[in-house]
Amino acid sequence: MSGETPVIRLDRLTKIYGQGDAAVVALDGVSLEVPPGQFLAVMGHSGSGKSTLMNLLGFLDSPTDGKYWFQGVDVSTLDADQRALIRRQFVGFVFQGFHLLPRLSALENVEVPLIYQRVPAPERRRRALEALEALGLGDRVRHVPTKLSGGQQQRVAIARALVVRPSLLLADEPTGNLDSARSIEIMEILSDLNRRQGITVVLVTHEPDMALWAERIVEFRDGRILSDRRNDRRTA
């Protein structure tokens, strides 16, 4: 991995939900390295542990055991507040259900993460506008989510993820609620961000078509890595 500090380095990362007889091992000693600028697809059926991995990578949850280095820093044992601080600074999320705030306009939605970063209002507005324009939504900034199509909503969500200039973009089934044309549109955007801006992208999906956009595909089953391969037939 050319001596560069990996964005993500996992060492036997384990997550167990519940206790005693009811304990469920969601992630069973996963070790993985993701170098900066990689486009990684995580595949698996539901219950394979891919969502748990996503939550741990995005600091939404903390591991039961094992180590997680994020950009060379051990982040395995941070508390909820420290995780929130890393999250707001370095991680952008794109969800299957878009998760836009229904009462806010597109612009205000994109501004939300900057509010938590204490970015002053004028700069916040400017950066949010830039992000929306970069995603072709310059004429939709005043629209509330219900006035936007699914593809537009997901693009607003991507703008919101990018506006903090994250080093890691986590996309959890981003095309799950979209038709194939919109899906391709979204995947083109993610691919483009990865290539042009060098953002590390981790895509969680159960659709092989979508995984083909990535340069590396890791497949999960029962909380373990089943296969880890380079994607030679990458969709352009």
């Binding site: 909820a80 507040d81 929130a84 999250r87 707001r88 998760h99 705030l101 939300v112 938590y116 970063q117």
Partner: peptide
């Protein structure tokens, strides 16, 4: 859900 989203976007418990 809104609260969860805000937390994912970096809101701490105190915020």
């Amino acid at each position: 859900r809104e609260i969860g989203l805000r937390m994912a976007l970096g809101a701490r418990a105190r915020e």
